[in-house]
Design a protein around this nucleic acid. Structure first.
Lengths: 348, 348
DNA sequence: AATCATTACTAACGCGCGTTAATAGTTGCG
DNA sequence: CGCAACTATTAACGCGCGTTAGTAATGATT
């Protein structure tokens, strides 16, 4: 249980003052230091196994070197978030490159304001990334006013916060247009999440937009609301099938849910894509392995995370980009779950 | 850009000293304080929106209130870690209950020692959880000597560190015995990861054990090494099929890889379970949705994470449990990917 | 009345570091 | 030789908080 090594110890061993140690180890060039002295200090530091105390550094410099990744779902949903690994991977990647640390926090719905305040005022972090926020987030206002850099992964209407996102609406539209181009006219839709999540609304809007462009009337009876989990994809597809409404294709706005939908369709004695074509959204790793392989919209999840980090770091340097949002491109990946509707099944 | 609110401000407003404020807000009962005074302080704190500065608190109290979750894979693998959400979910859950924060760190292979030292000496965290460590981890020794609480999720041979794990060997054995009980004698195996990962070795040993017990000779030609990703499950199953070796079942020590294996089998014009029975390992959420639903070993991932946290918190309170390891039970979940081998295909 | 214990509070130090203002030492130049 | 202009280094303060040792006031006990 040896005492902690402080910069004073390093200074003593090197025969200089603590200030000099600090200058050397932090590469402060404003006050010049003789190379030999610097070398002596570095040697002493290494010899003692000196690591500057993080809290002390943070307190003195007013920088924690931590950035926060804020998750807005409850732990049960987090457990089945098929996206999280990619997000985390991208974030860790960049964060590590800049020798920062990542603090992962989870916000309870209704507790947003409190949590954001605590996080910023207590200064646990230098900046934060907000993952998939909800429109009914009660803390957004506080974040806009707080002087802490924030990047939103996703979209919040009428917010002044910086954000990184994909064009959910456009991508969904493209997905549905693909179905339409295959001759489908009766197209169901299952959203990826409840509607307070902005991406859910945007994708639904894309669906409607595509229908409208093709002059297909929008029928609410063909739409269901999912909630992240595969199970809900199953449940909602079952509900659609049981409703008696006819449809030859479905846009399921999340791959995970699409897998559930597959199951419901199979259970009903039907098959994909022979009876029903399915387009997903996200392109999670398993989508190209499931049978039939899933036609879906590829979301560059890891890149979203990386770009969010890069953006955050710019903001932390008070280097504000001209544009408030970065929009990343998506790609429609056509696989085996969609197929042209036979003439016989087409409407007149 | 208003000045930060400090405890001095609270003290001034309440008309007491800073010390009193500290006592009140930290519930220090050793020095008694009149209820009215306490109330005054609490009111002032709330009125000012006072949040104690995390760095200062950490520095003064020598406790960061952060715990570290250390990932041992590279970002590319982290991205496809189907387990991570459950682990994170369980960890966040417990951590939040105890009003701590979670620092997620990723360790480069070869950099373990350096990273652990930095993490502990710089005192970023009060304790750490090591996820899926490798046997060739160069930093373990340092952690055993460091006086920081550590919990290992998984198993490290000959380590004195506390750990939470499942009986991988027993579970794998049970899985393979299930195949044997269905009449299979030629059983292939694909490991979940490279062999420096202890769980991979243990599961492989379970496989061998089961064969031995049933007096089935172990044939290395039926064994392949996976590496976490679905793609490698595909690749290795393809390699097995291409090898010409006959087998009627396979134990794939990771569900994610099993999905890849499904694909390879399908591509070869065969089917599960008619031609080949498959048992997976992990029971990730999608396993009950894929077709055919996957027989697998359920790993209580979230509970592992939670128990690891609880254990860590005990250690942080210097409350050392009698036993060094906690072993959690697994369950063999029998679904549709395994089937009894027809008499005609059985060996004499 | 004098002593003691108890209650309610505070002054002041230390945690380990970054940083500014000041100081000693050296060289250049007329 | 004397002054200026650097160069190399340090003393000392502050970051915001926890905590110990100590004080003042009150009541209880001899």
């Amino acid at each position: 249980m040896s005492r902690r090594v402080t910069s004073q110890d390093v200074a003593d061993l090197a025969g200089v003052s603590r200030t000099t140690v600090s200058f050397v180890l932090n590469d402060v060039h404003r006050f010049s230091i003789r190379p030999e002295t610097a070398e002596k200090v570095r040697l002493a530091a290494q010899q003692l196994g000196y690591y500057p105390n993080a809290s002390a550094t943070a307190l003195a410099s007013n920088q924690t070197k931590n950035i926060g990744l804020i998750l807005t779902r409850s732990p049960e949903y987090i457990a089945s978030d098929t996206f999280l690994p990619q997000i985390l991977s991208g974030t860790l990647d960049v964060v590590k490159q800049h020798s920062l640390s990542l603090l992962v926090e989870w916000v309870e719905p209704g507790q947003q304001l409190e949590t954001y305040l605590e996080l910023t005022r207590a200064h646990h972090i230098d900046g934060m990334i907000l993952m998939t926020p909800r429109t009914d987030d009660t803390g957004i206002k506080a974040l806009e006013d707080a002087d802490i850099p924030v990047v939103v992964m996703g979209y919040i209407p009428q917010s002044t916060l910086h954000s990184v996102d994909v064009d959910n609406l456009g991508a969904a539209q493209e997905a549905v247009e693909h179905l339409i181009s295959l001759g489908h006219r009766q197209i169901a839709c299952i959203t990826n999440a409840a509607l307070p999540y902005t991406s859910a609304v945007q994708r639904l809007d894309g669906y409607r937009q595509a229908l409208e462009t093709a002059k297909i009337p929008y029928d609410p009876a063909l739409v269901r609301e999912g909630d992240f989990e595969t199970q809900s994809g199953y449940k909602q597809m079952k509900s659609l099938l049981d409703s008696g409404k006819k449809f030859s294709a479905a846009f399921v706005a999340s791959d995970a849910l699409a897998f559930g939908a597959y199951n419901a369709i199979r259970e009903a004695g039907l098959s994909v894509p022979e009876d029903i074509s399915i387009v997903g959204f996200d392109d999670i790793p398993l989508s190209s392995f499931i049978s039939p392989t899933l036609t879906t919209v590829r979301l560059p999840a890891r890149k979203i995370a990386q770009d969010s980090c890069y953006l955050l770091m710019r903001l932390m340097k008070r280097d504000f980009p001209e544009s408030r949002m970065i929009s990343l491109p998506t790609t429609l990946i056509i696989r085996d779950s969609t197929r042209e509707l036979e003439e016989s099944r087409r409407l007149s």
